[in-house]
């Protein structure tokens, strides 16, 4: 028993990068529904590089997969802000050499030099999203511009929320004028009470496709990612997208190269391809997240400035996450 444990530990610690891969391929792990499959096919045809494409639906899923796999299994991943910070801390990603990227100049500087990776040593921005309130104006006429407006008892069973504890508990903190990443016990307790009040109005928590609730008139209000809200709006013009005045979450997903990647050159080629003007545009046309390039910008500068000013990144809060976890278990 003891020997096995020692063996386990030793084998987990041993590492060291092996050689470059001989096969002409690149192993990519990306968020589900983020790059249209047609773009990957085009890249393969153009360059002759085979893209082995896998998906994940949360940063932690990605972390679990990378940290438990052998070194060099994956090349290119797309972690969000706080996960970049965490992965740098755990020495899981490589430094990025922008000289390898012809289209680096296309990146919108507004998204560079963010807190989680000050000089973009390890990551480059890919797509961004913010949490917003979406309101179906066919059925709701009241003014809604802050989270506290959602507490109105008229909206019983009429709200859908993202099924994400950091965003939702964060929202309750913002509603009480605290920071979204607050780790003070008493503040979180206040947030919990606020959420218990809101709970009567909540019909469902859904992180897969909350837009469906709005499109099918199952609910009239949603706190959801802006891309979801935009798709819902394409179905129903009377859906209004509100940036809550108490603040909201910003999530920036980034290109990152996994430590010991065996297909670094191909990974750079793929990043460069996605940064190309025409390609980048295609991605956000299919999935309306916030484009982070100069050529593909899909938001008015004024709106973008407002978004960047009033939003907050989800931050790594370490073991304090157990406080959030408990609140989550209590409101469900």
């Amino acid at each position: 028993m003891k020997k096995i444990i020692v063996l386990l530990i030793v084998l987990f610690i041993i590492c060291g990068c092996s050689n470059e891969n001989v096969k002409n391929e690149v192993n990519v792990l990306n968020w589900s529904s983020y790059i249209p499959y047609s773009i990957i096919d085009d890249f393969e045809r153009e360059t002759g590089i085979k893209v082995n494409y896998g998906t994940y639906s949360s940063n932690e899923e990605l972390l679990a997969k990378i940290s438990s796999s052998n070194e060099g299994v994956y090349d290119l991943i797309f972690p969000s802000d706080y996960m970049i910070d965490l992965m740098i801390g755990k020495d899981m990603i490589e430094k990025i050499d922008i000289k390898e990227l012809e289209n680096f100049k296309n990146i919108n500087p507004m998204f560079l030099n963010q807190d989680f990776d000050k000089n973009n040593e390890y990551s480059l921005p890919f797509l961004a999203a913010t949490s917003v309130i979406a309101v179906n104006r066919n059925n709701i006429k009241d003014e809604i511009n802050s989270y506290n407006d959602l507490l109105n008892s008229k909206y019983k069973n009429n709200i859908v929320l993202i099924d994400d504890q950091r965003i939702i508990v964060g929202m309750s903190l913002l509603a009480n004028n605290y920071d979204m990443n607050d780790i003070d016990k008493n503040h979180i307790e206040e947030g919990k009470k606020w959420l218990l009040k809101l709970n009567n109005n909540v019909k469902a928590f859904d992180s897969d496709s909350p837009k469906t609730f709005l499109i099918t008139n199952e609910v009239d209000i949603g706190v959801i990612w802006n891309a979801e809200a935009i798709i819902a709006k394409n179905y129903n013009k009377n859906i209004e997208i509100v940036y809550p005045k108490d603040g909201f979450a910003l999530s920036l997903d980034n290109y990152a190269i996994v430590k010991c990647s065996r297909n670094k050159k191909n990974a750079y080629k793929f990043i460069d391809y996605l940064l190309r003007e025409d390609i980048n545009k295609k991605i956000t046309e299919e999935y309306p997240y916030i484009n982070t390039t100069i050529s593909g910008i899909n938001m008015k500068t004024e709106e973008l400035l407002n978004v960047l000013k009033n939003s907050t990144y989800v931050k790594n809060i370490g073991s304090s996450i157990s406080l959030y976890d408990k609140v989550w278990a209590q409101i469900k």
């Binding site: 589900s32 082995n52 994956y74």
Partner: peptide, 20 residues
């Protein structure tokens, strides 16, 4: 968890679609 890069199965493919 046990799939390698590029070895997609149908349930995994379907799972990756539930967002859209």
């Amino acid at each position: 968890f046990t799939a390698g890069p590029g070895s997609n199965t149908l349930p995994l493919y379907i799972y990756s679609m539930i967002k859209t």
